[in-house]
Each structure stands twice: as C-alpha cells, then as structure tokens.
Design a protein around this nucleic acid. Structure first.
Length: 376
RNA sequence: GGAUGGGUAUGCCCAGUGGCGAGGGCAGCGGACUGUAAAUCCGUUACAAAGAAACACCGCAGGUUCGAGUCCUGCCCCAUCCA
C-alpha cells in the first residue's frame, strides 16, 4: 500500500508498505544485479549504509545460478540473507544492453546467453515466472527498452508491443500469486512506460498502461543517450499521465543532479549503477563534486574522501590510503569506494525526504546542486 | 683472462624472416561509464605535425647492401658459468 505523506509541487514524500517492510520514498535502490552489490559488499554492509531496497536482475539470475535453484533455496531473500525489500528488474533492459545477442518477436525475446551462448527465450510469462521463483518484493514488467535514437515508427510498434506484454505480465502474475506453492503471493508488479523521446508516444502509452492497475509505474528507456534536457522534458510531460496514487520509478537514473530534478518532477523510486560502478573505478561522490581517487593529486592527501562523512570508508581511512589500495588492485579499495558512494546516495535520499517533510525541498535542492557546482 | 646469453624509443619487461618512419605488455598520467556482458573500456607516454615538407644514436664505431634493428668486424656494458 502506497501512501503519500506530503507534497511540494509535484515532488512527493511517500511510503510503500510491502511484505518485506515499508519503503520510505523518495528512495534510491542499490543495484546488485547478480544478487550481490559488486565490489565485495555484503548484505551485512547494506545495513550500515542505509540501504532500503536491493535490486537484482531476472535475466542474470535466470542464467546463473538459475531461478529454480533460488526457488528451491527458499527465494532470493533467504538466498542472499536480506529480509528487506528487493526489486527485480525484468530482463527488459537486457533486451537493450545485450542488443547483439537477441532477437525480438511478439511472443518474447530470444537471447544467446552472454555466459555460454546457449539459447534462452524470455517473454512476459517467463519473466514473471522467474521473478515469482525469485520471490522478490517488487517485480518489473517485461518490456522492450528501445534505443534513444530509434525512429518514430519503430518506437510506436515497440511501445504497442510493450503494452501487450504488460497485459500478459499482469495476467501471469495474477495466476502465479494464486498458486499454493508460490513463495511471495503478494508480489507487486510495476508497469513500464516507454516511448523514447517522443512525448505523444510516451503519454498515450502511459494512459494505456495506467488502465491496467499496476502497483506502481516506471519510466524506462531514459538516460540511454538522450540529453539531460530531453530526459527532464520527457519526465515532466509523462509523469502526470502515470497514476500519481501509485509509486513512480525512474529506471536506471542517475546522477545526484538527475535524481534531484526527477524528484521535483514527481519521481519517487530510483536506481543506477553509477555509485557502484564509479566506486569500483575510483570515482567518488562528494558534496563538492566528484573526485577521481586515481589522480596523482591525492597521493599525499590525508583527508577522508569527504570531511564529516560517517560512511565506513570516511570514518577511518584517508584518500591517500584508498588511492593506494585502488592502484594496488586491493579489493578493499573498491569496496570502500562503493560503500562511500552508496552511503552518499542513500544519505542524499534521506536528506531529500527530510527536506520534503519540512517543506524545504526546493531550497535543499538548490543548495545541494550549488555545492556540487554542477559537476555531477 | 675464457665460454655462453643479452643490450629495442620515455621507467621496467619483451616481439621483431634485409623493406622499420620498429610492435606488444606492465608501470605512469588522464578520461569515459545512467533498469551492470564493466575490479571494465578508451586515450597518452621521442621530436615534429596533417605535409608525398622534415625527421630519430634499435649499446658504440665501422663494413656489406639499392636498402641494416636484422648480416659481417671491432669495441663497450650487463648476466651466468669457468679459471
């Protein structure tokens, strides 16, 4: 059950109650594609960095270790020893990211496994079945994420198919939740809006999927090559057509600045590989912009990544030390950087919620963006 | 003193059948990354520079050749072994 606590313009301070606990929004979900946050981050670590929701991936877990294995082990929560909410992405994004390894048909998508090349078929029903086996808190609808440079005709056809797929997802999810041996009979389903950068396609698609009464709605296919202005424009134009009595999720986005802009436009769920991937690559988020710890100027820098930060890295270690770890390819280096970045994101979301609670989101957003001096 | 194997651009390690304006790896330096095929990828690492204009001590010096990093001679240095 989704409950809006407060609004400021279109920005929403809300909460979503699930069988795995309540999610306070706006929220940033921490990406752990293969049932692990890359960078040697344990489930235990997540508790120390304010993680509310972990995100895993249907396609990746289907390929390895196999969703039926996870089901036999009691579901994803038990498997990774995490009892808070988990959102599973449907595999729709892999239709985009594994572009060279798949063929799209009306019934679904034929992949060649990126692990061993074997043929895999995934359609709406299969995606729902896998996600039901995983028993995540929130399942995402199986969609196609078209390229941002796809032409209008292609996008129109793709979006129509994604809408038909959503009906099939809904139906299959309903069937699965009714089965006696389903692990999570209260699994939530989020539908996904597509339409590249064409406002009218986005809006008509939003209206169409809104009728299907999903538990939440996502904007997909953004931050895949279009400009920030185009992305903000699409969010602004489309969000009003997604049911605002349901959570709104902007998939795969983004930078801290992207998130602030999207919260302002009514989005309350986010996820992005930036904090984890950039962390592994030595790029650290701070309130004064992003720093690259590989740079020689940090060789003798005895300060923490960010003064005053209470993440596990900053509480104890210096930039110089972490730089050394990164350069020496010591696993601890990546780990500390990922922990810092996730802590930064999760803390920013906490600040956003607090600002919304206090009716001061606009000024919070301005001062945060000013602090980061537009570098992010 | 003798034997053998080596010395390749900017730190290190190495490739290089007479067509080489010499290739790769590491290290260094910088950049990219948005529902993760990413602890990855890209750039850069003599000078000059977009021109049929000029221009590198491949340990050093000669030689053979149209042409030598490559073949020959001598020398220098390094490693290992023998005295």
């Amino acid at each position: 059950m989704y409950k809006i606590l407060k609004t400021e313009g279109r920005a929403k301070r809300a909460m979503l109650e699930t069988v795995h606990g309540t999610i306070q929004t706006p929220v940033f979900m921490n990406v752990g594609t293969a049932a692990a946050i890359k960078g040697a981050v344990s489930t235990e670590d997540l508790e120390g960095i304010k993680t509310q929701v972990e995100l895993s991936n249907t396609y990746h877990l289907h390929v390895r270790p196999g969703d039926t294995i996870i089901r036999q082990l009691g579901g994803l929560h038990k498997f990774m020893s995490w009892d808070k909410p988990i959102l599973t992405d449907s595999g729709g994004f892999q239709v985009f990211s594994l572009a060279g390894l798949r063929r799209i048909k009306e019934e679904g998508v034929y992949f060649n496994s990126h692990i061993d090349g074997r043929k895999i078929f995934m359609g709406p029903e299969e995606s729902m079945q896998i996600q039901s086996n995983l028993a995540s808190t929130i399942a995402m609808a199986f969609d196609e994420c078209p390229s941002s440079v796809a032409d209008r005709h292609y996008v129109e056809a793709s979006v129509a198919r994604t809408a038909r797929w959503l009906e099939r997802c809904k139906k299959e999810m309903h069937r699965l939740c009714g089965l006696e041996d389903t692990i999570n009979k209260k699994q939530l389903l989020f539908g996904i809006n597509q339409g590249a950068i064409y406002d009218d396609i986005r809006i008509s698609h939003a209206m169409r999927i809104a009728e299907l009464e999903c538990d939440g709605y996502a904007l997909g296919g953004l931050a895949v090559g279009e400009s920030h202005e185009q992305m903000y424009h699409v969010i602004e134009e489309t969000v009003p057509y997604l049911p605002q009595n349901k959570p709104t999720y902007l998939m795969g986005v983004g930078t801290p600045a992207n998130i602030l802009e999207a919260v302002e436009r009514g989005v309350d769920f986010f996820d992005c590989v930036y904090p984890t991937r950039n962390g592994r690559h030595g790029h650290l988020y701070t309130n004064r912009g992003k720093i690259n710890l590989f740079n020689a100027k940090y060789e003798l820098d005895n300060r923490p990544i960010e003064e005053g930060c209470s993440c596990p890295a900053c509480r104890r270690y210096s930039r110089a030390y972490i730089r050394h770890l990164l350069k020496a390819k010591e696993m601890l280096g990546m780990r500390l950087c990922v922990l810092h970045n996730l802590y930064f994101y999760n803390t920013m979301m906490e600040e956003i919620r607090q600002a919304l609670d206090e009716g001061g989101f606009a000024s919070y957003k301005k001062s945060k963006l000013d602090g980061m001096s537009g570098h992010l």
